[in-house]
Design a protein around this nucleic acid. Structure first.
Lengths: 320, 320
DNA sequence: GAGCGCGATAACCGTTCGCTTATAGTCGCC
DNA sequence: GGCGACTATAAGCGAACGGTTATCGCGCTC
């Protein structure tokens, strides 16, 4: 599999015909045909089958087309970026847990980049269990989220304590009840955002089976559903303060909550850490950073961020 | 630039040394050195510089490391997927606008995949202006969002009417006022989610300059901020019904609102459309689909979705 | 300052790539 | 049934790839 072959294939997929692709690429048809033959041999799939007027993709061909387009875009982009990088424009790559992406990173990065004009930040939402691999592969300079498991060459510093509380609609049967054992909530519908690790851990710690859950694409949507009486939710305290104060949500007094937890900033160890990563790692533990995150920021001024080049992949499959 | 070269470079980046990388790859050191030399020539960047005990990445090298890891993962994945695809497992690739990702696609896909066990769906959040390119490149089978501009080979069908309304905290000075001209809100702080196209269009249509905005990572977070009195918001009516009913948010009676709009499902034209894309395109216009979306679904049952392989990239740069 | 570890370069070699021209196969369609 | 459009294969060729062994250059360290 070479880039030239992928380029041929991507063009075939787009054009729906080998000869059209050959014309578009400025080569003869056998050149495209032979690139295709190489890919077929390499991948063990027909990739395309003949059809009236040209060629149609097999299921495998569809997947290759997707990946090929992706790889070619990456290749083109990296050519541009490596060139740009010489003119001292620095890039800080972040991997963040879903919750951090939703509540922490925007105000944090707003405050951080304000002090460092010219710095460019790319952020990627990832699962905390991938943090170590992301750092080792240099796909991220800093990872923000729950403490990653210890990994060689990776150092994590805690930077923000947060509390997990259970909330529900004010009309909930347990609103106002005192010191409720968690087991009493096993039959509830638990609403979760994109990550449900904390909830699972909470139940697992007490030896309880994981409860029924309703998954939302964002934490905020799950909160709105909780406010509408659709279930209970394990929420980060400072994100529901306003809602509780306004009486939209009520905190349930569940035994063992509020539960304390810490967000960590993980980087490679000292020598292999970039100056920017080091700067962010030092910044996140300052009071200014904490202030920026906790002070309900009202969003980041639009215009400081590029229109979000925001690629997310989410797979849905049938139930187990 | 070849995959073998990228593999060498990625290993060097991970190991921090050419000889260590050579050992890890099971080749001699000059082999790695020559791969590196090829990349240097190709990209016009040193990529790595010597340092005690090995080698350190240049800024350009950092970016290449990121992209290399990404491309190699893609290559590995596509090898697996093309093999899997032969056993009739079908994959439907979606591109969705940010708002659709937040409010529409989860219940829609839940209802759709329930009827078609075995179907696998991958979803990617993208800007509507990229829809045509995504479809043409086969990076998506169906694109859901605002009507894309007309493009050759792309067909869009409207499938859901929605209304845009202006909401704010109930204590807002204009709550209760009748038939307020939009211009009166030009000085407000407008809260937006990841996409702000509708808001910009609204002001542009009336010849008004785009207002001050506060950007949030999700629509729901912007709604919560609006409820907290931090500004006004252009929201999708059915997503704020509950909040308005509960008195958390109030709809402002702005002249020209509610504004009607339609979500569209775009695909390639007839012959080049996969059967799954066609099925979804037919499904989205059925009452069942509308029902699933509008009926405040309370989230998708967890377990029907894989842990979100959810990669998002968001760049922040300094203002101006 | 000598030794050592690490990267760069040189010379060489077999394989693959990417392209050409020429030709053969295959399918749909009038 | 044969024409036409399209894809597949063959033969050949220059260039690049990917690997080897041998050697050189450079900076640390003792």
């Amino acid at each position: 599999m070479t880039f030239a072959q992928l380029r041929s294939f991507a063009t075939v997929a787009r054009m729906g015909s080998l000869s059209a692709a050959a014309h578009a690429l400025g080569v003869t048809e056998p050149a495209v045909s032979s690139a295709l033959a190489s890919l077929r041999r390499d991948l063990g799939d027909e990739l395309v089958v003949r059809c009236p007027g040209g060629v149609r993709l097999t299921p495998g061909g569809e997947r290759l087309a997707t990946a090929a387009a992706e790889m070619l875009r990456l290749e083109e982009r990296v050519r541009r970026e490596v060139g740009d990088a010489r003119e001292a424009r620095t890039l800080l790559r972040l991997a963040v847990a879903p919750t951090v992406a939703e509540y922490v990173s925007a105000p944090l990065l707003d405050a951080f980049t304000r002090r460092r004009p010219g710095l460019e930040v790319a952020q990627e939402v990832a699962a905390p269990e991938d943090f170590a691999a992301l750092l080792a592969d240099r796909r991220a300079d800093v990872a923000l989220g729950p403490a990653p498991g210890p990994a060689p060459g990776v150092e994590a510093v805690p930077f923000l304590r947060y509390k997990l509380v259970v909330v529900a609609a004010p009309a909930h049967r347990l609103a106002g009840a005192r010191d409720v054992p968690l087991g009493a909530l096993g039959v509830e519908r638990w609403l979760v955002g994109p990550g449900a690790a904390e909830l699972e851990r909470l139940f697992a710690q007490r030896g309880l089976p994981a409860p029924v859950r309703g998954a939302f694409t964002t934490e905020a949507a799950a909160q709105a559903a909780a406010a509408a009486g659709e279930g209970v939710m394990l929420a980060i305290a400072h994100t529901v303060i306003d809602a509780v104060r306004h009486g939209t949500l009520a905190r349930l007094d569940i035994r063992g909550t509020p539960q304390d937890a810490m967000w960590h900033a993980a980087t490679l160890d000292g020598a292999r850490r970039s100056p920017e990563a080091d700067a962010l790692r030092r910044f996140v533990v300052t009071p200014d950073a904490t202030q920026a995150i906790v002070a309900r920021p009202g969003g980041v001024p639009a215009g400081r961020f590029r229109p979000p080049v925001y690629v997310s992949i989410w797979r849905a499959v049938e139930a187990g």
